[in-house]
């Protein structure tokens, strides 16, 4: 491991850190917290020159110098026209955010190492359209327009590194419309949470059938010939079970269901993931097994220290198992 490079400009950072903290505290007092809708009122929208606006100003000063030097009345006129347009654009930029309502939406769970997505709903109850609103946590900006009297939904990515609850940081909404000379921005502290499942182990060992089975070492999950009926396709169903003939006829994906026997249920046991001392590694393996068992269409149960999920199948069960794995050993965040 390389030692981390010493942070540069430490003295500056040291000077600025208290200011930064004060700024953040001040912001947090100004903006409401929690999962409530937030209306961007006048005192919550900030506006200042953008970076390209700075270039614009430098250009105006250069043009003014030329106008003075060559005594060009029309150049004066042009400089004043552009400056006045920039001035008028302040209000257009500001109103593009003013009165907009932000609402926290759903949050898609993901696996550790992947990207969680948070939904933010923008509601425009004014008579003017809102253009090119950029939203972001820290990463890339997601932009959207909102028509008058309409709502827009924006999904914001946030990379998840650890399992458990991923709490969305401060949300920043900004706009440069129309000229890009000024940018208006605001913040929302929704503290949306997304569940991050443990990272599934790469190349996990086969499902521990033997550990729970009848001694043969293999298990026929619901006997493949005990056909029980059809149910609609759900994500995660094995393609092998899709009733393709039905699909060809009815345009609907149906899955063949078979009788399974509770006694034959597969148990994914904390202790079965033996050989791994590390908790996270065990959780990774169990996660991979849950996914494998679900993909195979098996009924399975999950046994964790202090928590047992009875054998079942289907998406809801898989999600419950994944949630249990994600939150294992983590106190429920309040």
């Amino acid at each position: 491991m390389h030692p981390a490079p010493p942070p540069r400009r430490t003295w500056l950072a040291g000077l600025l850190a208290p200011l930064q903290q004060r700024w953040n505290r001040w912001l947090q007092r100004r903006h409401p917290h929690g999962m409530v809708a937030q209306r961007l009122t006048q005192n919550r929208v900030y506006i200042f020159l953008s970076r390209s606006g700075l270039v614009f100003c430098i250009m105006l000063v250069a043009m003014l110098g030329g106008a003075i030097n060559y005594d060009l009345a029309l150049a004066y006129l042009l400089v004043f026209l552009l400056a006045s347009m920039a001035l008028a654009s302040v209000f257009h930029t500001f109103r593009n955010l003013l009165g907009l309502s932000l609402m926290p939406g759903r949050a898609d769970p993901c696996f550790a190492g992947e990207v969680a997505r948070f939904e933010v709903i923008l509601e425009n109850d004014s008579r003017l359209p809102r253009h090119n609103l950029g939203l972001r946590f820290e990463g890339p900006v997601e932009a959207s327009d909102v028509a008058p009297g309409d709502t827009a939904r924006v999904w914001l990515p946030l990379s998840a590194s650890k399992r458990g609850w991923l709490v969305a940081p401060r949300l920043r909404i900004e706009t440069h419309w129309p000229l890009g000379v000024f940018q208006a921005w605001s913040y929302a502290f929704f503290s949306q949470r997304a569940l991050v499942y443990p990272k599934p182990e790469n190349d996990p060992p086969p499902l521990p059938m033997a550990a729970t089975g009848d001694g043969e070492g293999t298990l026929t999950p619901r006997g493949q010939d005990d056909f029980a009926g059809l149910r609609p396709f759900q994500r995660g169903d094995s393609p092998r079970h899709v009733a393709w003939k039905v699909a060809a006829r009815d345009d609907a994906l149906m899955v063949k269901e078979f009788h399974g026997q509770a006694a034959e249920a597969l148990w994914l046991d904390w202790d079965a993931a033996s050989g791994l001392i590390d908790t996270e590694a065990r959780l990774s393996r169990l996660t991979a097994w849950v996914l494998a068992a679900h993909a195979a269409g098996l009924a399975y149960g999950l046994r964790l220290p202090g928590e047992v999920l009875a054998a079942d199948q289907g998406e809801a069960h898989r999600d419950a198992c994944l949630a249990a794995l994600a939150l294992h050993g983590i106190r429920e965040a309040t």
Binding site: G65, I68, Y70, D71, L87
Partner: peptide, 29 residues
Amino acid sequence: RFAGVLMLQALPVMALLFVFFPRIEGPLW
């Protein structure tokens, strides 16, 4: 059209700046 609206909105301020902005006798260089 919006650009035109913006330019029209800028006109009064532009005229005021033109009349009032202190003029300096050139050339600077």
